[in-house]
Design a protein around this nucleic acid. Structure first.
Length: 486
RNA sequence: GGCCCCAUCGUCUAGUCUGGCCUAGGACACCAGGUUUUCAUCCUGACAACAGGGGUUCGAAUCCCCUUGGGGUCACCA
């Protein structure tokens, strides 16, 4: 298993949709492995399914990978010595292998129609055994088969599996894995339309691109013996394998649309911090030690090893992800956070395009920094501080409708109007009002907060005062209590 | 169902390979306190797991077997 080949790993998405969370993590592990041992990380586009490919998918996959902070040494956009990195452009290179397979008889023409195969399958199932191949086709001699093909009989090319042979390989994560060839049918390697299938081209490309380690999702474990047989038929070195556990949804099954957002793009749009998602994805099935939760990319690369990837599937826990995002946000510098949050503010129509240097915005973000987990939550929470008047939530309305609320706020307004701005000791002023009205502090604080912000939670009122400015504070204290009740 | 993989708190995990240091550690969530005018943050504490059964051994979460449970996969998709 320990070959001395230069480390070359690849991530090979097919551009038929958005990048899946699981795919993102697979890419991440490949990247981390390459970067941690000085190897190359290659991006290969598996676009042999021409009917389902879309250019938008490809673009969004590349965007998602970049958003995560991954970079690659060879790929569709940057080229490399082993191109093309689009399988659709590598068709000629497959032809040689297919011809050789036919020549060497590890590929053979199968003339049984799909319907006939289906019948055979059903029969086999009834006999409680696996369908393995169409006997007539498998036993046809090469000359006769070639003749039939020349005569125009439709056929596919199947891989001739050994009759009885154990195919064993070492997996970096699973250990020794063995499949019996009896359990694997003579799979279709080339379709009736002459297009090669996944298992063939995947192995062919891994061989041609001199991939040293195949790190991919566990769902590919069952494909591995098929691909290994291709390497052996070709007489090229087999890559080492590492099958990473699946990411599961809340239901414990492979993460799917049913159980929540599955595309990385959904999380990007929702306002998760890239570094946090990166960190979190690493922790799904991998750990540095018994304590470390938050780490930098450098620390990851320092510690990364396939040995520390766990074997069992992990449920995608959005609660912990949200916590981690909040933690990253709290650690960010203010300018950094402002620019991260700005697009969401613009989208919410709260600020202008060029508001990043706006001092007021900086103050607001600072005031809310420890209060939100997703970038998109900031405009929601701070919305009340932007316009002329806030929207009051139910609790705020209740507070403003309370007995004495209007009196308290307007009295505070009167005091503020006469005091210096900003007041040296705001709390003392509030206490004065409370004593004057002979009510508890809360009877004043709550309506004031409600009047100023439209909600009962939030940053310290001193900061709110500073953010709103004298005029708006006075106006909100005087007008809102009445307006909110209507 | 066949084949393959997996199995520690509700969740992510450490510990498993190289049995003893495990009275099973950390984190998220939850709960209870404290700080805070509020919310959040922060601090303290509580709750909470080796799937079951057999072996092997002086000793098993760790090694072996069986059972059970979960997952993946069974296409001319990738």
């Amino acid at each position: 298993m320990a070959s001395n080949r230069p480390v070359r790993v690849r991530f090979a998405p097919s551009p038929t949709g958005m990048l899946h969370i699981g795919g993102a993590r697979t890419a991440l592990f490949n990247w981390a492995f390459a970067r941690s041992c000085g190897g190359k990380f290659i991006l290969r586009i598996e676009d042999t399914d021409t009917a389902r490919n879309t250019p938008e998918s490809l673009q969004s996959i590349l965007d998602s990978l970049r958003w995560l902070g991954l970079d690659w040494d060879e790929g569709p956009d940057c080229g490399g010595d082993f191109g093309s990195y689009y399988q659709s452009e590598r068709l000629p290179s497959y032809q040689a292998a297919i011809a050789r397979g036919l020549q060497e008889d590890w590929l053979y023409r199968c003339f049984a129609s799909a319907e006939e195969i289906e019948v055979q399958r059903t029969l086999a199932r009834e006999a409680k055994c696996n369908w393995r191949f169409d006997e007539a086709s498998r036993n046809l001699n090469q000359a006769d088969a070639a003749a039939r093909a020349a005569a125009g009989d439709p056929f596919v090319l199947r891989f001739r599996m050994p009759m009885a042979e154990d195919i064993t390989f070492q997996d970096h994560i699973r250990g020794t894995v063995t499949f019996a060839s009896q359990g694997i049918e003579d799979w279709v390697a080339v379709r009736g339309n002459a297009m090669p299938t996944y298992n063939l081209v995947c192995a062919l490309d891994d061989a041609a691109m001199e991939i040293s380690h195949v790190i991919r999702g566990e769902e590919h474990l069952v494909n591995t013996p098929k691909q290994i047989l291709i390497f052996r038929a070709l007489g090229v070195p087999e890559p080492e394998f590492a099958h990473v556990p699946l990411i599961l949804g809340k239901d414990g099954k492979k993460l799917s649309k049913r159980t929540g957002d599955t595309a990385l793009g959904d999380y990007i749009r929702a306002g998760y911090a890239a570094d946090a998602l990166f960190n979190f994805l690493c922790l799904l099935g991998f750990s540095i030690d018994d304590k470390t939760e938050i780490f930098t990319r450098e620390e990851l690369l320092e510690a990364f090893t396939l040995k520390r990837i766990s074997k069992s599937g992990a449920i995608f826990d959005t609660d912990k992800l949200a916590w981690m995002c909040g933690d990253y946000i709290r650690r960010m510098s203010l300018p950094e956070l402002v620019s991260a949050v700005l697009p969401y503010c613009i989208e919410a129509g709260l600020v202008a395009q060029d508001a990043s240097a706006d001092e007021a915005l900086q103050n607001m973000v600072g005031a809310f920094q420890e209060r939100f987990h997703l970038y998109s939550e900031f405009p929601q929470q701070a919305a009340g501080l932007f316009g002329a008047l806030p929207d009051w939530d139910d609790q705020a309305r209740k507070a403003l409708a309370g007995e004495g609320a209007a009196l308290a706020t307007s009295q505070l307004a009167d005091i503020l109007e006469k005091a210096n701005w900003p007041p040296e000791d705001f709390k003392a002023l509030v206490v004065t009002v409370a004593e004057d009205l002979e009510v508890g502090l809360g009877k004043v604080m709550k309506p004031v907060r409600a009047a100023l912000t439209g909600t009962l939670g939030g940053p310290e009122l001193e900061r709110i005062l500073q953010i709103l400015g004298r005029e708006r504070v006075l106006r909100r204290l005087r007008e809102l209590p009445t307006a909110a009740r209507s």
